[in-house]
Write a protein that binds this DNA or RNA. Structure first.
Lengths: 329, 329
DNA sequence: AATCGCAGTGCACGAACGTGCACAATGGCC
DNA sequence: GGCCATTGTGCACGTTCGTGCACTGCGATT
């Protein structure tokens, strides 16, 4: 039964051999419609190993599953968002009964599987952090690329903890997925004093990061929303104090991207907190060719709508309810 | 549980609704990793229906599964074929113990799933017939395209039966898969008298077909081999008689593509049977930008090698044993 | 040289899946 | 308007699949 000649000299799954076996198994499973049992006997391993090989093949991008709408331009909802906001939309289908947490999880997983399509060799990818990106990063399949750089979009320290692990975990996973160099941004999320920020921005180490950010080909981020029931990380994590919130309210901030705030009309001039934020100036962000925003939950509608009004976004991934909310006048 | 608002006014799976439901189910299954059970309850149908929806989505090309080798340029075998014959190769992995019939089936299925990648809107696709193409056509997933033409490469009648159903069945399936117009070629596989062929070739109806053939962007065919254990259709189907075989042997024919014969060295001049054949002149065939040859079984090695020597082929899909045979020596 | 750690394996179990069947609804056809 | 053919559906069954667990053998570390 078993054809032992398959992998002549691989006593125990060698580094190289694993990918080759996964490739062969994938071809047999997905192109030839064989059962795992049959593949196992051809490969001379147990069926469970085949199951694992296939899982590996999916994660590692050997098998690439993509879904294309049969109708040109996607669903009606997606087309309407595209027409209204000039943003390419991906709506994650989902009944309205789904809880906030599941919503986030499902949107993040979908976004994770969409993302590799946007990333290619020699690109620089800017990544924000927060609950959305954390979930997303956990589901990223990988893609064999060269010379990719992943750079942190904004600082992640706060008063209680450095927060570095949290952000770096996300970056790390992006790095692994795309075989990328990872560039952290070791500054707090917000400075207390704008002058400190200015000083830091003159530091060589900081400038290096800023220069990398300036070369971004792709930015991935969520949107913050003060109204969140599952509050955005930046509002709940102790990054801002009572005075900050008052200041934001006075300046009519309605949401943020990577700790930089904007108003409902898409403007952001003179929002005082921004002078202490570490995220990219929104003017600069807008120069990034592709800017993917991932968001789940209707409470993000106002913030996301404003972000789109500010033209911060070229692609959105949203759940169905949020999508409906966006287009409901 | 069930969210009845999903498809407001579709009492029983409407024509349009099916694709939409399949799309939603696919996104939930493949992008969000939900179980069919969970999807069923969200869509308000039974789990079995979801299973069928997903099958439909795969067949209809809503879900597109592709497999890419982790190493640049495919397996070693594929690279060697590419280097040796200047032909892009796809090797279907398979142990040497597999029977001839299974071999054919598995190669055909793989080829069927590869083919949509080569076909696009506004193309003209030439299709031969035979056991390989019959098997292939049975597994073609479909792809939503416009203005595609499928044209029969060579006649299919013989002395006993018209053979039209056999060939037309194949064409039909190609047509359905790509939403294409189908152009049959209602002539026998071989004429008895070269003069009849010449006369027919002057007929307007025939010329129309030949003109369509002249515009082909893609041709798909197998190779015939007199040595086949599973004999190629053209040798076993009663299309040729004893004298014809003698004539072919005298002229050193070693194989054929779409009923047109060639020699081991890649030449075909003065093979007398060709004057009565209905397949495309090989010179003309060579002008088709992409020419995909599908073959299974080591007995096809000589014929296929010669076809490649004659530069009739730009892409091959072959089983592993045949591939090894091609590069041996 | 002996030990530790870890990646990879098969087993066995429960969960998830595909499909033949009988039935219901629908749309076309007399 | 009633009939039949066609298409889709849920149920139930047997099959196929994913995963926690205990185990093995290799490479690194001391």
């Amino acid at each position: 039964m078993a054809d032992l000649a398959e992998v002549p000299s691989a006593p125990r799954g060698g580094r190289r051999g694993r990918a080759a076996a996964a490739l062969a198994a994938s071809q047999k499973y997905y192109m030839q419609d064989m059962t795992m049992e049959a593949i196992a006997s051809e490969l001379g391993v147990s069926r469970s190993s085949v199951s694992r090989l296939l899982a590996y093949a999916r994660e590692s991008g050997i098998v690439d599953i993509r879904i294309t709408s049969p109708v040109e331009g996607g669903s009606a909802l997606e087309r309407e968002i595209r027409d209204r906001f000039l943003v390419s939309a991906h709506v994650v289908p989902m009944p309205s009964t789904v809880s906030e947490v599941d919503r986030l999880e499902r949107v993040a997983m979908t976004a994770a599987r969409l993302l590799p399509q946007f990333v290619d060799s020699h690109m620089t990818v800017g990544v924000a952090w927060g609950s959305t990106l954390s979930a997303l990063s956990r589901h990223l399949p990988s893609k064999e690329l060269h010379n990719v750089t992943v750079v942190q979009l904004n600082g992640a320290g706060n008063m209680q903890t450095t927060g570095i692990e949290y952000a770096s975990e996300i970056l790390q996973r992006f790095g692994e997925a795309f075989g990328a160099r990872v560039q952290q941004f070791p500054v707090p999320a917000f400075f207390d004093d704008p002058a400190t920020r200015a000083a830091m921005w003159r530091e060589r180490s900081t400038r290096r990061v800023l220069e990398i950010q300036a070369r971004m080909d792709l930015a991935v981020f969520g949107v913050g929303s003060p109204a969140a029931d599952v509050p955005s990380r930046v509002y709940a994590g102790g990054y801002l104090d009572r005075d900050d919130f008052r200041s934001l309210a006075e300046d009519h901030a309605i949401g943020d991207v990577a700790t930089v705030f904007y108003r409902a009309d898409g403007t952001w001039r003179d929002i005082r907190v921004n002078a202490r934020a570490t995220g990219p100036d929104l003017e600069r962000l807008r120069r990034v060719p592709r800017r993917v925003c991932v968001a789940a939950g209707v409470h993000k509608a106002a913030s996301l709508r404003s972000a789109m009004a500010a033209r911060l976004v070229t692609d959105v991934v949203v759940d169905e309810a949020l999508a409906r909310d966006l287009v409901a006048t």
